[in-house]
Amino acid sequence: MPNREFELSVRFEPNIKNLIMGAKLVAEFRTKSGVDTRMGDQIELAVGEALANAIKHSRSHGDNAIGLIMNVTEDMLTVKVEDNGIGFSPEKIPPPDFEKLPSNGYGLFIIKEVMDSVSYSSNNSVNTLTMKKRLR
């Protein structure tokens, strides 16, 4: 029987090798929530993209500057990814150029495609990307 309310979190250093820590948390989320394979795959992808972006743009080294929080309340998943980088304005990021097909710049597009909503905020040097998805 899947859990309908729970929260999972992890913090780690902004090292790209630590992407696996996010993947482990997503695996735990999949088990606890009982989401179907396709939805689980989409969430895994969005979290991976958000974490990779946060790690690449973090300004700190050697501390736990990257945070991942996955909160399930009723049928809604809220994912927060925190970093202390220079931040960005999601609305200023252009969509990928599907004619020229550059080899990067697809992360935010993918997140928007697979999640129901995406928002971004910066407070006291902490940037938070918040993604929501209805689970059922």
């Binding site: 993947a23 992808l45 993209e49 550059p102 080899s103 990067n104 697809y106 992360g107």
Partner: peptide, 16 residues
Amino acid sequence: SFIDSSGLGALLASLR
């Protein structure tokens, strides 16, 4: 088991 946009980017760059 998993591919993200960086993995896809590596394949695109290799294709080119």
